[in-house]
């Protein structure tokens, strides 16, 4: 012990400034070195592709003529974004709550005391990883679903060049990424995994259900603008007349941006 002690410290250390690029690298290391990342992302991909193909197969099984008219092979093959969004949302939440629950946040904020670069880096790293992976998963789910359809019900399968299909495939990846950013913001604001996940589920799944209870003349002015309803406008091959696809996704992203803004303000203002 004593021999190690007498060695002068810091022979190799010349730390420079804290830069956004360095904080990005730090957050990238953090994201890839905890198990929850691979668990949630694998869950999301497995749901999208595996469940997607299964559901496509089952739903195409016995359709009557009327149902065939409403069946959309692209939408059905991507419909398992629903369970996948929970996995992605949980990963987003854990970006912050994993640090608050373990006390790691103290070390992080001691290294990056200006705080905001850390939020920016977390959101950026998350967006990069999830967008790339979910784009791949969306394409895999789409092609997997079409492969299932063409082997059994060739008339139901779609092609990427069909109107709206490419938009829906990319839109699914973008929608899932924005859901994850909701999670990141809620995790930073609420700081507890349980609370943030419950709130995320409330916003994504419960709010539209409550909207449906409104009187019809109110509902038409409110329902399309609820976060997940707006975001899911991009997922319809035939655009919803009440909300254009990209307008809806932009509105959804706007809500996420507002929440991230609130998270930034609170992060700067609150005691850690």
């Amino acid at each position: 012990m004593t021999t190690i002690l007498t060695r002068p410290l810091g022979a190799t250390v010349r730390p420079g400034k804290v830069t956004l690029l360095r904080v990005l690298r730090s957050e990238w290391i953090k994201l890839r070195t905890v198990r929850s990342t691979s668990i949630t992302l694998l869950t999301a991909v497995a749901a999208m592709v595996g469940l997607g193909m299964l559901v496509t197969h089952l739903r195409a099984g016995d359709l009557n003529a009327r149902e065939v008219a409403h069946f959309n092979g692209a939408e059905v093959s991507l419909s398992m974004y629903r369970p996948a969004q929970l996995a992605v949302g949980v990963l987003g939440v854990l970006m912050f709550t994993g640090e608050y629950s373990t006390g790691m946040i103290h070390a992080t904020l001691t290294a990056v005391p200006r705080r905001l670069p850390m939020l920016v880096a977390k959101a950026a790293v998350f967006t990069g990883v999830v967008l790339v992976l979910m784009t791949a998963a969306s394409f895999a789910a789409y092609f997997g679903g079409q492969a299932v359809l063409s082997s059994t019900h060739a008339h139901l399968s779609t092609h990427l060049s069909d109107p709206g299909v490419t938009r829906v495939v990319f839109g699914t990846a973008l929608y899932l990424t924005v859901v994850g950013l909701f999670g990141v913001a809620l995790g930073a604001i609420i700081r507890s995994s349980a609370g943030a996940i419950a709130t995320l589920v409330g916003i994504l799944l419960v709010l539209p259900g409550l909207g449906a209870l409104l009187p019809a003349d109110w509902a038409q002015h409110i329902d399309p603008y609820l976060p997940s309803n707006a975001g899911q406008a991009v997922l319809s091959v035939v655009p919803d007349p009440a909300m254009a696809p990209w307008t809806g996704l932009s509105l959804f992203a706007g809500y996420a941006a507002a929440l991230l803004g609130l998270a930034a303000w609170l992060l700067k203002r609150r005691d850690a």
Binding site: T12, P15, S26, I29, V34, T102, M104, A107, V112
Partner: peptide, 28 residues
């Protein structure tokens, strides 16, 4: 006093992530 360490990360990666913020080399 409160242990400021993510329980799911290895000691090495914990230090590596902190070091990255100021460009401290792996060797350190």
């Amino acid at each position: 006093e409160a242990r400021a360490i993510h329980t799911g990360r290895t000691a090495y990666h914990h230090l590596l992530a902190l070091a990255a913020t100021t460009g401290i080399p792996r060797q350190r």
